Amino acid sequence: MPYRPKTTVEQWRILQAVVDAGGYAQAAALLNKSQSSLNHAVSKLQNMLGIELLEVKGRKAFLTQAGEVMLRRSRMVTQQVEDLERLADTIDKGWEPEIRIAVELAYPKQYLYQALQAFYPESRGSRVQIIDAVLTGTQEIIHEKRADLVITGSVPKGYLGEPLYVTRFIPVVGKQHALAQATQLELTELSQQLQIVIRDTAQKPQEQGGWLKSEQRWTVDNFYEAIEILQLGLGFCWLPDFTVQAGLADGSLQVLNFSSGSEKLAPLSLLSPYEEQLGPGSKLLRQLLLSVHQKETKDIPCKINSLSN
């Protein structure tokens, strides 16, 4: 006889919510369900499996050793079900009504806008939502599959990305800053200076990249807010080359001069969190974006030749 499951996907989703939220009461508020219904669902799940998954200590629920193993596997199952439902939705609707593209702030959007300009006549009325993301915020979007396309500075394990662009991060200050005219600086000298940093957009940000050794830091939402502060003569910041061109040209910003190289390179890639369920509109926009960069790469020799003449 064919195997008949003892448990339901909904029961596993409830277990995941209880663990992720840290307790039954918190999960009930998150799922808009009664706490008693969640208790009943998890209790029935444990009874059907014949093993204890959770133990309650005080007001918090903790996974047992067996629960940790089962929860890990259950996330894979619920994700597969979600992917199947998305695939069915894509097949049913055909051309998607909305396309979400998450973009790391370190990426120059001029290339995306060129792709969107070519996409518009073919878009069939699809709405396009552009989501700005920074650092681990971009990773969260990928793992939670909150966008159709993502331009990211780090491709997580299990995903494949198409290389797009390499951004150079340059350390700069305003022309009024005490370090503006200094030469042969050491990186250690910056530890006592005010550093301007860009806010990580993750719900649970993790400081795992960049130079963050200053005793005093001010955090802003984007590079252009950072530039406005720098131009007042306050602080220093590593900024993408394309954001500081105007400031360097008019002299309001100055590059910090170090005894050893201080530029940082950030390779950016394009990926889709759920490749198999990607709709035709998203596929077209992806191809157009890749084409923009392919054209840019072909034009580089011409630019070099024109500079050398």
Results as ranks from 00 to 15, higher is better:
1 M>T: 04
3 Y>T: 04
3 Y>D: 09
5 P>C: 08
7 T>W: 06
10 E>C: 05
12 W>Y: 11
18 V>C: 11
19 V>F: 05
19 V>K: 06
29 A>C: 08
29 A>G: 09
35 Q>F: 01
38 L>E: 03
43 S>D: 12
43 S>I: 08
48 M>D: 12
53 L>N: 04
56 V>D: 15
59 R>D: 00
59 R>K: 11
66 A>L: 11
71 L>Q: 02
71 L>Y: 01
72 R>T: 04
72 R>S: 03
82 E>I: 10
87 L>K: 09
88 A>V: 09
89 D>M: 08
94 G>D: 07
100 R>P: 00
102 A>V: 00
105 L>N: 10
112 L>D: 06
113 Y>I: 00
118 A>G: 04
120 Y>N: 13
126 S>T: 01
128 V>T: 12
134 V>Q: 08
135 L>D: 12
137 G>D: 01
143 H>D: 13
145 K>P: 01
145 K>H: 07
145 K>Q: 10
153 G>V: 02
156 P>A: 10
161 G>P: 00
170 I>F: 14
175 K>V: 11
180 A>R: 08
184 Q>C: 09
185 L>C: 10
188 T>Y: 00
191 S>E: 04
198 I>F: 01
199 R>G: 05
202 A>M: 02
203 Q>G: 05
205 P>V: 04
206 Q>T: 13
207 E>T: 14
209 G>F: 15
209 G>W: 15
212 L>Y: 14
213 K>E: 11
216 Q>L: 11
216 Q>C: 08
217 R>V: 05
219 T>M: 13
219 T>K: 10
220 V>A: 11
222 N>Y: 12
223 F>Q: 06
224 Y>G: 00
225 E>F: 15
229 I>V: 08
237 C>I: 00
245 Q>E: 14
246 A>V: 12
251 G>Q: 08
256 L>S: 03
258 F>G: 13
260 S>T: 09
260 S>W: 07
261 G>T: 03
263 E>P: 04
263 E>H: 08
271 L>R: 03
275 E>R: 05
279 G>F: 02
280 P>K: 01
280 P>A: 13
281 G>W: 02
286 R>I: 09
287 Q>A: 05
290 L>Y: 04
292 V>M: 12
298 K>E: 13
300 I>C: 05
301 P>V: 13
306 S>W: 00
307 L>T: 07
